[in-house]
């Protein structure tokens, strides 16, 4: 590398040569910074999503590499958020990939003092059995005036409001058809 060339790399000279008196433009770039790229540039896929926290509905871009989420960023195309995310939305990559997540079904038996793990299929079977038993035992066909009730007050439900519409639809459809009327949601709270 010639002497002349290295002198030209001296920042003050570059700021003058490149008409960048504040030193905030191109002249601030080193070879290393020039080679830097965002972590997300290596993503295999970018998936369109929506923030799961509040009702604003900010757009999210989910960056995936090797089947894992690398990062979640705001979506600049969204007319709602134009790329922005608030502290909660920005933390959603930790929500999905954090160590807090439990990955097994847990079970506490009556009067038990600890959690036990259960296989998913077994747990589903146990819940279905309990629904059937409680429903059959607490069924009300009609009231004393002979009006149809066709329901059970023995089982209730309370859902969060970060559930999808499709989920709520199947919850209402199934539970209603089982005769459950005490089906409620955070939407009332």
């Amino acid at each position: 590398m010639s002497k002349k060339w290295s002198l030209r790399k001296w920042p003050a000279l570059r700021q003058i040569a490149e008409r960048d008196p504040a030193g905030l433009g191109e002249s601030a770039m080193s070879e290393r910074t020039r080679a830097l790229k965002p972590r997300t540039a290596d993503a295999d896929r970018v998936v369109d999503s929506v923030c799961p926290y509040c009702g604003v509905g900010c757009g999210q871009k989910v960056y995936v590499k090797d089947g894992k989420i690398m990062d979640i960023e705001g979506d600049y195309d969204s007319p709602i958020s134009l790329g922005a995310l608030c502290p909660k939305g920005s933390a959603s990559s930790q929500l999905v990939a954090g160590t807090h997540r439990v990955k097994k079904v847990l079970y506490r038996r009556p009067y038990g003092t600890k959690w036990e793990e259960l296989p998913l299929q077994k747990a589903m079977e146990m819940v279905a059995d309990r629904v059937k038993k409680t429903r059959d035992e607490t069924w009300e066909e009609q009231n004393k005036n002979g009006h149809l009730l066709r329901r059970t007050l023995g089982i209730a439900h309370l859902g969060g409001a970060t559930l999808d519409n499709e989920e709520n639809y199947l919850i209402k459809k199934l539970f209603c058809s089982l005769g459950m009327v005490q089906v409620e949601n955070q939407a009332r709270i």
């Binding site: 009702g55 409001a161 709520n168 005490q182 089906v183 949601n185 955070q186 939407a187």
Partner: peptide, 19 residues
């Protein structure tokens, strides 16, 4: 609305008084 789909939870209600 304070939740991502609280509006949706009313439109497709998991609420006792509505279908």
């Amino acid at each position: 609305r304070g939740h991502a789909s609280i509006q949706g939870s009313t439109d497709i209600p998991t609420l006792y008084n509505m279908l």
